[in-house]
Structures are given as structure tokens and as C-alpha cells.
Design a protein around this nucleic acid. Structure first.
Length: 479
RNA sequence: CGGGGCGUGGCUCAGUUUGGCUAGAGCGCUUGGUUUGGGACCAAGAGGCCGGAGGUUCAAAUCCUCUCGCCCCGACCA
């Protein structure tokens, strides 16, 4: 029945890419701009980001992190201080070469990430072991001159948070790196309802300048993996490059240990893909800008009474901390609104018409499975939060089942290639850890090592050579 | 950046092969009226120098050159 209403939207199962673009634009999450590679985050899409921000910010502050802001511009010489870092980012940096009509003496990078400027400041701020740790987070934008655009998933400018910390010991820094990865997992799984695998990145895939990178990897419906967040352990690489030294309690000058970590608006792209269906978006209740949309249904003279009651019920729910909107536009029919809010992914719809008015009840409809239930006005305040939780956990379960069904274990390279070709998904396989095998797998299948597991690989042989395996690793094609 | 595709009212597209009169359709939008429990209907309107620049021609949405943008598939990245 949905089919006849939303024929203009391609089916998710038939043309996934086109479905994605249409949903993003028709649900008014984002739009293209005249600026190449740059997007507008429209209010409805930005509200999702604000909810994600709020959820993460709370977790970061609870673990002692503070927000701050650093400049958009980074002098070229700063970027160049850490050799691997500059090598990794140089190809995608945008440069400012003029200001106020004059040529700059030193060109300025528009930050692709802020390690360089932040490490410089940390070097000034750190004198003693008592100054550590420094736990700072930034909510900002960065620019990377990417070659292709995909709304939310890859744009020249994007929004994110980047955390940068400096610690007294290696252990402290590694602990921070892993703690943040867990916070990210908590955020992505419990707020966005997207299950993730967490693990260390291979040498080739790790962040430019890092000693170790940990990543959250989520599975999209087309069988490709999406990196949903990363945390980096820098060892003393940046501390040495930027001279972040402190006097320890034993009287010795030592280099600090640093980390950085980030998640971006790409998460929004992930949740669109993971949860949506042929009728449109399905937003997990915890990050949905509108959790309950109230649709009044009226005929002629009942209009006033129905709308009044709709607002009254909405106010009651808003008072209970829910995000509620009454769609009382009179230029659209109820059926039109139903479809519209399904397209926009509101988790719950509350229908209120004359029949309901007579019965002192309303019809509650779930977006994820379209199940309807009649709820008395008095029961709404208790029923709706429960229904939202049901949707939240049901979305997570559904995504998890899909991932489980599409995570396969193999030790056979021929089978590996076949599955990667025909079904995609995650493939868990033993790997020797050598770049040569990684390259060969990539050349043969376009799949890469998404992350390593901590499972013991004792006794196993590498998927594509004769050496003993060093790790079990998740492989997948990726975004 | 390589290969392929596409740019015509807000949207989806026809018209381009073979140049020709005032550039069309559906949806959407505006106004009025009737409607409203799964994308209502009638009537009257508004809205496009055909992505941009240059060229060929008596004449260009249509042909040529350049350019910009978007989509898909690769390579690179969050």
C-alpha cells in the first residue's frame, strides 16, 4: 500500500544509492549548495546532529573532558612538524594564501584536523606532571578537499568533534584511547541503534601520525562497512614533534603521551542507511528531532475541538520531556501527513479524530512496523515513553540481526573472494598482518581490513599466504 | 583523478538524433470553493531567456568548443 503513495522514491532494496539521496533531500535533512562539495545541514538534519552532540557531550563531560575552541587556520610550518601527519593530510588540505588583499608570508591551512595547532598550545601549557592530563574536546568544522561528494558521508566541509588529550604515561594515554572507543560504542549503539565492531586498525589503515588507531565499524544494508568513529593513540610522536615536555615527580623531563579521537556528521548518514525503509527514514527515538507527531483529523465543525485537544495532549507530553509536534496544517489531508511523517522518520504518530474524542483515546502508530494501538488519554504519558524504547531496541535488534547474518567466518581465500563478490558484508578471517597480503586482498576483492579482533589466532594460517596468522580480522568493502 | 551517465518552471521528465513560428506535460505552488480516519476534488492563476561562456547560422534547448555541477562504478579519505 505504501508503494502507491511514494512511487517517486526508489525502493531501498532496488536502488540504494538513489534511495539515499532522495530520502536525504525529501526528508529535508540536507541539500546541495552552489559551493562544490559543500552541503547545507537543514534544520531537521541539524536537529539530529544536535541530539547526537548532546548525547556525546554529556558522556565526555562525565569523564572529565572540557570543551574549547581552536583556530580554523593552521600555519603550514605547524602542519609540517609531524612527518607522517603532513604526508597523510597534505593532498587534501585547502590553503589560504591571501588576506586583506595581500599575499601571506606563510600560507595557512584550513584545518583538516587540529592536532598541529592544539599540540603547539599544549606545549606551552604543560610544565609539570601536575598539568596532566589535558582533556579537551572541540565541536567544530573541518575541511578536506575530497574528490567526491555524498551528503553526510563525504563532503569537503563537515561537522564533527575532535578530542585531543595529553597524558603523563603511555598507559594513561592508551586507557584514554580505549575509554573513548567505548564511549563511542555506547553512543552509536545505544543512541543511534547501530551495532558496531570495535578494533585496532592495520598499519596501512591507521591515522597519519598515530601509533595505533581504533575504529568503530558498522555494516550498511548494501553490505559495505562504514567507519563510524576513530580513536588514536599517538605515543610520543606528536609530543616530540611539538616539544610537549613535563617535569615528572622524579625530577626528569619527559615527553607527554597524546591521543585524539572523533566522530562526525557521517553518523547521520549511517543511521539513515541502517534504519530506513521503502517509505523513508526511520529515526531512532533517542536522536529523533520529533519523537511523536500528532495528526489531528477533523470534519467541518469538529475542527476546533480536535485541534484544541491535540495541542493539549501534546503539551502534556512535552511537559514529560518528549519531543512532540502537532501537524495542524489544514492544507493537507491526514493521509498526506501520514506519508510525509513516515518519509521523515518520526518514530511515533498519534492520530486524534472525532471517534477518538468520543472515546477519550487516540491511535498510536509505530513507524518501524506500522502497528496501531488505541491508547486512552490518561495512559499516553506512560505508554509513549515505553513505545519509544520498544522502537529504539527493536531498531537495534533488527540492525544487529542483519549484521550477524552478514558476518561470516572463513579461512579459505577462494570462499572469501566469492562471498566478498556475491554477498559482501563482514568477513572474519585470519591474517598474517603483512601489508603485502592486505594489498593483494584489496587488489583481488576491493575489500580492506576494517579492524583487528583480539581473538587468538594461534594455530591459524593467513588467509592468503603460508605464514601463521597474527590476528583474526574483519574485512569488508567500505564507504 | 580515471570510466560511464545526466543538467529544460520548485520536482519528475518530453522535446535534441534530422536547427525553424509563442518551449510542453504531470506533480507541486497561489487564490476561491467543496473536502479530510492512508498522499482528496473543481475552477482560475503565477512560474522557465532550456547549467554557464563562447562560436556556427537568416534562425540554436537542438550543432561545435570550453567550462561548472550532480549521479553511478573505480582509486583516495571520516
Amino acid at each position: 500500500m505504501v508503494e502507491e503513495y511514494v512511487t517517486a522514491i526508489p525502493k531501498k532494496s532496488e536502488d540504494f544509492s538513489e534511495w539515499y539521496v532522495q530520502i536525504v533531500r525529501r526528508a529535508e535533512l540536507a541539500d546541495y549548495t552552489p559551493v562544490k562539495g559543500c552541503m547545507v545541514y537543514r534544520p531537521y538534519g541539524y536537529a539530529i546532529w544536535e541530539n547526537i552532540q548532546e548525547a556525546l557531550d554529556r558522556r565526555l563531560k562525565a569523564t572529565g573532558h572540557q570543551n574549547a575552541y581552536f583556530p580554523l587556520f593552521i600555519p603550514e610550518s605547524f602542519l609540517a612538524k609531524e612527518a607522517e601527519h603532513v604526508k597523510g593530510f597534505a593532498p587534501e588540505v585547502a590553503w589560504v594564501t591571501q588576506g586583506g588583499g595581500e599575499e601571506l608570508e606563510e600560507r595557512l591551512a584550513i584545518r583538516p584536523t587540529s592536532e598541529a595547532i592544539i599540540m603547539h598550545m599544549y606545549a606551552k601549557w604543560v610544565r609539570s606532571y601536575r598539568d596532566l592530563p589535558i582533556l579537551i574536546n572541540l565541536w567544530n568544522n573541518v575541511v578536506r578537499w575530497e574528490k567526491v561528494t555524498r551528503l553526510f558521508l563525504r563532503t569537503t566541509e563537515f561537522l564533527w568533534q575532535e578530542g585531543h588529550t595529553a597524558h603523563r604515561t603511555s598507559e594513561d594515554a592508551m586507557e584514554e584511547t580505549l575509554r573513548i572507543a567505548e564511549i563511542y560504542r555506547d553512543l552509536v549503539e545505544n543512541e543511534l541503534a547501530i551495532p558496531v565492531y570495535i578494533g585496532r586498525k592495520s598499519e596501512q589503515e591507521k591515522f597519519a601520525g598515530a601509533q595505533a588507531t581504533f575504529a568503530l565499524e558498522a555494516l550498511m544494508p548494501d553490505g559495505k562497512a562504514l567507519q563510524a568513529g576513530t580513536t588514536h593513540f599517538f605515543g610520543q610522536n606528536f609530543a616530540k614533534a611539538f616539544e610537549i615536555k613535563y617535569l615528572d615527580s622524579d625530577g626528569e623531563q619527559k615527553y607527554a603521551w597524546t591521543t585524539s579521537w572523533g566522530v562526525s556528521t557521517r553518523l547521520i548518514g549511517g543511521l539513515i542507511m541502517v534504519h530506513g525503509d521503502d517509505a523513508g527514514l526511520i529515526l531512532p527515538p533517542r536522536v529523533a528531532p520529533i519523537q511523536v507527531v500528532v495528526v489531528p483529523i477533523f470534519y467541518g465543525n469538529e475542527q476546533e475541538e480536535v485541534i484544541r485537544k491535540a495541542h493539549e495532549l501534546a503539551q502534556m507530553l512535552i511537559g514529560a520531556g518528549l519531543r512532540v509536534k502537532v501537524d495542524d496544517r489544514d492544507e493537507y489531508t491526514p493521509g498526506w501527513k501520514f506519508s510525509e511523517w513516515e518519509l521523515r522518520g518520526a518514530p511515533l504518530r498519534l492520530e486524534l479524530g472525532p471517534r477518538d474524542l468520543a472515546a477519550s483515546s487516540a491511535i498510536l502508530v509505530r513507524r518501524d512496523n506500522r502497528k496501531k494501538e488505541k491508547v486512552g488519554w490518561d495512559a499516553l504519558i506512560s505508554r509513549i515513553p515505553v513505545a519509544l524504547e520498544e522502537i529504539q531496541s527493536s531498531l537495534f535488534q533488527r540492525a544487529k540481526e542483519f549484521r550477524t547474518a552478514n558476518t561470516r567466518r572463513t579461512t579459505d581465500y577462494v570462499q572469501f573472494q566469492r562471498v566478498m563478490e556475491e554477498q559482501r558484508g563482514f568477513l572474519l578471517a585470519p591474517w598474517c598482518g603483512e601489508g603485502a597480503c592486505e594489498d593483494r586482498i584489496k587488489a583481488d576483492t576491493t575489500a580492506t581490513v576494517r579492524c583487528l579482533t583480539t581473538d587468538t589466532a594461534a594455530g591459524a594460517t593467513c588467509l592468503c599466504c603460508d605464514r601463521p596468522a597474527a590476528h583474526w580480522a574483519y574485512f569488508a568493502k567500505s564507504y
